[in-house]
Design a protein around this nucleic acid. Sequence first.
DNA 1: ATTACTACTAAACGAGTAC
DNA 2: TGTACTCGTTTAGTAGTAA
Lengths: 229, 229
Amino acid sequence: MSEKQSWRHLYTLLKLAEMGAHRRTAKISTEFLARKLGVSQQSASRHLIELERKGWIKRTITPEGCLVQIAESGLNQLKKLYANLRFLMETAYPPSVTLEGVVFTGMGEGAYYTSRDHYRRQFMEKLGFDPYPGTLNLKLLSDYDVKTRLELEAYPSIEIEGFKSEDRTFGPVKCYPAIIENKVKGALVAALRSHYDASVVELIAPICLRKNLNLKDGNKVRVEVLTLP
Amino acid sequence: MSEKQSWRHLYTLLKLAEMGAHRRTAKISTEFLARKLGVSQQSASRHLIELERKGWIKRTITPEGCLVQIAESGLNQLKKLYANLRFLMETAYPPSVTLEGVVFTGMGEGAYYTSRDHYRRQFMEKLGFDPYPGTLNLKLLSDYDVKTRLELEAYPSIEIEGFKSEDRTFGPVKCYPAIIENKVKGALVAALRSHYDASVVELIAPICLRKNLNLKDGNKVRVEVLTLP
DNA sequence: ATTACTACTAAACGAGTAC
DNA sequence: TGTACTCGTTTAGTAGTAA
């Protein structure tokens, strides 16, 4: 969907579907399509050529107009858009939210927790990566970020079960897949420890975020938190 | 939706919604939006300015980025697109199909039927216009058109009830709202009489189609048949 | 850091027209 | 009629940069 010009083509595809070309072969002249698109006949012609090149439509030219049918790959584009919109319109929470905070050094307990075998195995299974032993602590910057972080509690999360060891209890943890600094896929973990308040979040990733993103205490970090399953 | 450039703006709106701006005020920098849109930061900035001018978003600029929320009119645009796509994806029939045929002169019975009071009142009530007394007969041109006309039978139609007079019975009639030659809003009536086969359709309109469209026998006419209620 | 202006480039568009 | 080419115009997009 994010290919260049693809959006304009999707619009043409939508109009073709409105004429039934997604269910049947429709006879559509470039002039008629042009009216529907609000462009010139020449542009409509070009759009059809481009759509055909992309493999989004099948086309047969006849003297009375084009016989057009949307191909499977074209229909998939429309379905993708539909699924996207349905999610946006029907669910109460957004697909992603972004948080900003500054790096700070905790008490070094992150490494201890993330390397507990019960946690670690669940991270691998449910998040799809083996966490680097240690968490990146972020102090949220503004009221906006704290408010957003609190809203996160209401969104569906990945639940990591707690467990008991010989001498103590490890509580359950909520995770949210996240993209850190637009680069690294990791996760935001909530309540891994109870030391911090709502203005603090912890991040885990398959790699050492500090090293890989060259972060030092006080650096600002942007996190895109994903709510999609 | 068909205003100029409106489609590109709708795309930006969709991306903003993906960041939650349709349910909450989201802090979004033009740089971040630009990545999501696949354009430059400058273009993203321009898009936001244009969306704000249109009244589709509310925006507050802060040093750390823009606080963006999609306005009601913007949300309506997304809802419109969603409803449109839902109809296309969930229903088996298309919103419109086009037919082409050539004008021919019937036996002059159209005027008699369309002016029967029981029919006429139902046309006014259910189609929203008082039909000109008479029908325009079209002989469909190709196999494609005949096939399309037959498919029409399976689509939902406006039902005109039959009735009895003193001496005879008038059967029920199916109607489909239609746009004739991209200009006149009328309707296609099916089985008003049983004289003709599947390669013939009859049109009614509030005006005399022959006169207004300057039609003579043998002229080609394009009809866009609407299936939407 | 941000936003967004100006100046320029690239792309989309449309008029004319060939087929 | 149709489609679709060339080519000049318009519009969208980007780079550089000021605030």
